[in-house]
Design a binder for these strands. Structure first.
Lengths: 210, 210
DNA sequence: GACACGCTTCGTCGGCTCACGAAACGTCCC
DNA sequence: GGGACGTTTCGTGAGCCGACGAAGCGTGTC
């Protein structure tokens, strides 16, 4: 259920129960514990109980645990499940930023262009800030919650890092808004649009033919 | 046992069993699982089995979980336990860097002096690199393992961040070597020496009278 | 108002987890 | 070699965990 919630959206208790393959009553208990423990936040609307990860910290913890546990279980199963997981490996959202091969390639490209620096921790360079401004993205500064502006997040299909933090989230938002990418019917899956491929090639030298 | 191992040193299986208050046979099983899971690394020497956290990533995960679970349990108990935990709250090591009020104050001072920047993630500034060189600390660059040079680590007594990463570790090493601080007889406890207090005041304007 | 629906509460039960002690093994030190 | 010591293996047992279904509650819909 926590993995399902990594898509960053709020799910109802019933959806999570179905996703996990357990009875609704079972889900109620577990979700209650997770809320009590501060990992999930809930919002009640009518007869629905919406649940989401309580914040980036919680998402980070789930990512970390998932990375260690190895989500290798996803790669086996029915044909349908396998092809779905292949699509997810290609491009997906991870909480509120991009993941999968696309996410990893994006961070690589940003580093190659000198927009993000990996030498001393992960940091946004001066050109990087300009590049974001050019795109119309307001460069976020560190806020109350102390969420890092740029952060590395371990990608558990690629086993390499992709870009998280407020910049990762803002970039993902922007790409969705400008229709460089779009969501498919499946929860966390992402598809790069024609326009997105062009923009990424021009702005970052990123070739997505693979 | 994981919390005990956060002191960054290797413990024997028996020590960990005693620390956790379980039978040696019980500890054997659990430690075996943790090693299999990749969280701990082991090293056998004669009849001893030494265990340590497998790396900074593992330490980070334990820190994160401990922070969420709230180590509030430590603050109650016998008088002896309470005074021990007070000493730990004052200054201790966390894996391989400094924690407790000292650790938090150190990071604050570094930021105030402009040696570390909190605005865009956490990063080491140009003056910060010079400051380290002046101390005789070679400024670490990002290495194979991709361990961040500077990283924020949530301090679970102070509920604020202290400095981790390779610089946090190097600084802690240096302070021990130069006897600015020294270990006490208790596992993770640290005491600031006279000399250390002087140096910290002069170099960082850090006053430790509290 | 009746009904469908989503969620929750409660009671129950199987099974797994985790603890222990006894015994064995290997190492180190007389 | 003998004995102390640290660790491991194995068997056993208590207890908790986590699952379910039935029943109940509140909300939305016809």
């Amino acid at each position: 259920m926590c993995l399902a919630l990594l898509d960053g959206r709020a799910w109802t208790a019933g959806e999570l129960a179905r996703a996990a393959g357990v009875a609704p009553s079972t889900a109620t208990v577990h979700l209650g514990l997770l809320v009590d423990g501060g990992l999930l936040a809930e919002e009640r609307q009518g007869r629905h109980r919406y649940l989401r990860l309580s914040g980036p910290g919680a998402a980070g913890l789930v990512e970390d645990l998932a990375g260690r546990a190895g989500a290798g279980t996803l790669t086996s199963g029915s044909l349908r499940a396998v092809s779905a997981s292949r699509a997810l490996a290609r491009a997906r959202t991870c909480y509120d930023h991009l993941a999968g091969r696309l996410g990893v390639a994006l961070l690589d490209a940003l580093c190659r262009k000198g927009l993000v620096d990996r030498q001393v921790g992960l940091s946004l360079t001066e050109p990087g800030m300009e590049w974001l401004t050019d795109l119309g993205i307001e460069v976020p500064t560190v806020q109350r919650t102390r969420r890092p502006v740029v952060r590395e997040c371990l990608d558990w299909t690629e086993r390499r890092h992709h870009l998280a933090g407020t910049v990762g989230a803002a970039l993902c938002d922007h790409m969705l808004e400008q229709r460089w990418i779009e969501r498919t019917s499946r929860p966390r899956e992402i598809r790069v649009t024609e326009r997105g491929a062009d923009e990424l090639r021009q702005r970052l030298g990123l070739d997505l033919t693979s």
